[in-house]
Design a binder for these strands. Structure first.
Lengths: 196, 196
DNA sequence: CTTAACTTTGACCGATTGGTTCATGTTTTG
DNA sequence: CAAAACATGAACCAATCGGTCAAAGTTAAG
């Protein structure tokens, strides 16, 4: 058995809080003091538990990716029409990312800060994008099998378009006012699916 | 007439250099020392000439926006087929943003750092996005008049999709390896234009 | 030539960054 | 109880951040 007192905080909960900070502010702009305040722990505890700021970020990034991929996959594979699920997801994002307090996608937001620098971070990011692409691709294939989407199109290519577009939406939503731009993008994307 | 010695550097050239640094690194990560080194000037000269780091960034952002909008508009309104011009532009971006040293779009890269914070910066960013949307929209309209694109589609909605998609491409290109993802996105976007 | 206007350089500023160390306190095992 | 194992908060660290200031140097006008 382990001796000594237990942690006064739940590392999982604190990690979620850290994720929120990195999500909203980005890696660089998320200062240690801000992280500590939101996580509700002391500096020493952070370094003992997670290593350092970058390691914490990596864990938070992974946490985000798992959370997000699972949520999206579940929504898209919900019972009923695959195409309707896809449309609903896009339209939800249109509304969500247009809200002023929306802070986009944690991965997209943080791509700027790293990219060239850290290969470990880049790897997690690429893995997330690939998983998301696969989720989209599977959903489109299901829609094709259900006869809702033309079999003439290449599902993977459309999935890749959706991935780029939604990342763009999440990014631009951080600065845009109003839903107009995102609305047009979603409308066009849906049109491509329905008649493509 | 002004007395005293002239500046030993060209403010326009130095601004271009600053733009490159902000473009590659983003606002936060672009340190004063890096900026000074690349611009080849002293700290005092920077503050006397441009104000402060944020004002310099604002000028660099504006410089970038003007440069980029003009270049894109010129390409899209080149003589010949409007649709072919659009396709060529997208395919060029696919190649360009897939290169490892590609650093995406300066506006997109820097959206993460500001957004909520600085309204002056957000304004320049929104203005750039709107101008780009208009340029796309005009090009699509020309393609419709030339009979290359179906008149059934709403040009602005497609322009908005292209804007989101290309921003997403520029962003993801910073971290991706290989052209596959961007290639699929471009293929799908072109398909939408050609048959939509 | 003198002087006023201007630029440049480098030292300097307080604040904050991410990160470490230490002394103290707490809890559980033996 | 004693002691080992653990967590904690505050003090502390060098480095760097953006930004300022004063002294020295340079050029043009009078």
């Amino acid at each position: 058995m382990t001796r000594g007192p237990n942690k006064q905080f739940d590392p999982e909960v604190a990690l979620s809080k850290a994720m929120e900070v990195f999500w909203a502010k980005g890696y660089e702009a998320a200062s240690l003091s801000e992280l500590l305040k939101q996580m509700g722990i002391g500096k020493k505890s952070l370094y003992d538990t997670y290593g350092n700021k970058q390691a914490l970020f990596l864990k938070a990034l992974d946490h985000y990716a798992n959370l997000q991929v699972k949520a999206i996959r579940d929504r898209l594979s919900a019972p009923g029409s695959p195409l309707a699920n896809l449309k609903a997801l896009l339209q939800d994002w249109q509304v969500h990312h247009a809200q002023p307090q929306s802070c986009g996608c944690m991965i997209g937001t943080n791509i700027a800060d790293f990219s060239t620098d850290d290969e470990a971070v880049a790897k997690v990011m690429r893995a997330y994008l690939t998983r998301l692409e696969d989720v989209f691709c599977a959903a489109i294939t299901r829609a094709q099998k259900a006869g809702e989407v033309s079999s003439a199109i290449e599902p993977r290519a459309i999935a890749q378009l959706l991935l780029c577009t939604t990342q763009g939406m999440a990014l631009l939503g951080r600065v845009l006012e109003g839903e107009a731009l995102l609305g047009g993008a979603v409308t066009s994307a849906i049109a491509l699916l329905e008649q493509g």
